[in-house]
Design a protein around this nucleic acid. Sequence first.
DNA 1: AATTTTCGTCTACAGTGGTAGACTATAATT
DNA 2: AATTATAGTCTACCACTGTAGACGAAAATT
Lengths: 125, 125
Amino acid sequence: MSTENIITIGEAELEVMKVIWKSKDAISSAQICKAVSDHGWKRTTVTTFLARLVEKGALSAEKIGKSMYYTPIITAKQYKKAQVKSLLKNVFDGSAQDLVASLFEEKALSDNDIAELKAIFEKKE
Amino acid sequence: MSTENIITIGEAELEVMKVIWKSKDAISSAQICKAVSDHGWKRTTVTTFLARLVEKGALSAEKIGKSMYYTPIITAKQYKKAQVKSLLKNVFDGSAQDLVASLFEEKALSDNDIAELKAIFEKKE
DNA sequence: AATTTTCGTCTACAGTGGTAGACTATAATT
DNA sequence: AATTATAGTCTACCACTGTAGACGAAAATT
């Protein structure tokens, strides 16, 4: 493992990442702003998030014409895995069973979810 | 639902909570300090964590003799559920399948884990 | 050409969390 | 009694995150 890639992404920053992850190609700040407009953030707020995400190495940016375009460096998959891993380690002391049990207790799983998960398990072993 | 119970607990604070959760009865700051000594925190640092946890309503404190004794208000179970819920919502957009799939990809599950989880599923439906 | 709109850049401020020193009061030892 | 150890309280500092205003340049509109 490399000398560590512990990039933290804040909750608001994450909303921005999600928009970029959804986009097939590099996406402009204008488009990003539009996509997160429901959050009510000012343009400069979103811009700050973008700048910080670039600083952290989560995004790469390039200026095309007048505007900045962003591309993910960290993928959604990587991020998700890192987050589950972190939760598993920090909160559940490594017990995946405990984690999944908590999901149940949260009633976070529909019958359909359960069916799907069983399918995953069957396949996996 | 009440008007919200979004108590955030930092990573270091959590280590302190864990110690208190493990203790059957109210536990003194001295004992807590001893229990977290491997982290190398100064006494006053731990004390700050405790004070903040009390402020946030995660712990209750009472002075007995010379020392403060702490008892959890938030239980480990509540906290864990809230954390999984939060991860599910913020990172996995509510898809529990996606979350569990990430656990797999993380290779966080041993064969034994898988067996145990299957058992949970069987029981649950 | 003059004006307005669109963007990027810089600076700032408050809240939370990690970290701890200074100060004080009380209890334990010598 | 004098000294030392123990434990609580206060204050502070920095990094990170959410939030955004002020400024300036370039592009689009009138």
